[in-house]
């Protein structure tokens, strides 16, 4: 058995894997990593199952003390990680001794980082997933954000991998996010849909794993409204009557009352979710 302990609280961190399946019918969202590609990469580098749970950090990681020797890998946003005082590289196999302290800082470009441990983490599994979902109190510590004092235990698995065959795409940040037309796209005038493509947008810091609110509004006289709530999936972009765009994310509602103007395809969501707040990007209609 091994363990780690948070000795200072991260900005926002939870346990995530690839999420749950087939429960949106009951209004239980899939949850899972905001950047699934980085989560899978971390697991792949360590030779873990690709769907194994990792710690997902948004913005800053806090400080972690390892209470036993292990092997880890960090992927995604570059939070300038250090083990004790030594800078360590992303996307690499890092040996950890008992008592080592992992720390990092606010990333310059991206938003999400994943910490994988070469071990089987001892965590609650609900509906075939370890992902935290705080609204329904699902997951480690009822899905709450990880904080100072939290301890995660595991059972060691011997390391038996080599990095040679793993291709690493180290540019998760993307200034152009692909979108497609969603069901209500045709309700909007060309002036409005043109703004969606021509304008620059950024994620408001008042966003969370349920949804990303965009800072820059769409300008128009009158926006269409729906007569009833309609289904939504992660990646769907809603346009509110006040001109605000909201992107539904992994912990998001399964139905919503705002028109769906466009959607980010599933395989593009990792790139979208790596945009740091206030970092400008554009949408590209495909």
């Amino acid at each position: 058995m091994g363990s780690l302990r948070f000795i200072s609280s991260p900005f926002s961190a939870t346990i995530q894997d690839l999420g749950r399946e087939a429960l949106a019918y009951y209004a239980i969202p899939a949850s899972g990593a905001l950047d699934k590609k980085s989560l899978q990469l971390a697991n792949k580098i360590l030779g873990n199952p690709l769907h194994a749970p990792c710690i997902e950090f948004s913005f800053t990681p806090g400080k972690i003390e390892f209470e036993s020797a292990t092997t880890i890998c960090l992927t995604g946003a570059d939070m300038q990680f250090k083990v004790n005082d030594k800078i360590i590289k992303l996307n690499s196999i890092v040996g950890i001794k008992s008592g080592d302290i992992l720390s990092g800082s606010w990333p310059k470009l991206n938003a999400r980082c994943y910490l994988a441990v070469k071990a089987k983490l001892d965590l609650p599994n609900i509906y075939a997933s370890y992902s935290s979902y705080p609204n329904a109190k699902i997951g480690y510590n009822s899905g709450a954000n990880l904080k100072k004092g939290d301890q995660i235990h595991w059972k060691e698995i011997p390391l038996n991998v080599s990095l040679e065959n793993i291709k690493v795409d180290d540019k998760p940040f993307c200034e152009s996010i692909k979108i497609k037309k969603a069901p209500e796209y045709h309700l909007y005038s060309k002036d409005i849909t043109d703004q969606l493509i021509a304008n620059e947008f950024s994620i408001d810091s008042n966003s969370n794993r349920m949804g990303a609110r965009l800072l820059e509004k769409i300008i128009g006289d009158k926006f269409p409204e729906l007569k009833a709530s309609v289904p939504v999936l992660p990646g769907f972009i809603q346009l509110t009557p006040s001109g605000t765009l909201i992107v539904i994310l992994q912990d998001g509602h399964t139905t919503g009352g705002y028109p769906r103007i466009a959607y980010i395809p599933e395989n593009e969501l990792s790139a979208f979710n790596q945009n740091a707040p206030r970092k400008k990007f554009k949408f590209k209609l495909v």
Binding site: A24, Y25, L233
Partner: peptide, 25 residues
């Protein structure tokens, strides 16, 4: 909507059923 959800057809990941629409992922 319920029958479609319970059908567990291979090509379907999620079924969300609202009053006027059913979304099949």
């Amino acid at each position: 909507g319920k029958a479609l959800y319970n059908s567990r057809l291979d090509f379907i990941d999620e079924v969300i059923c609202s009053e006027y629409e059913i979304c099949v992922k």
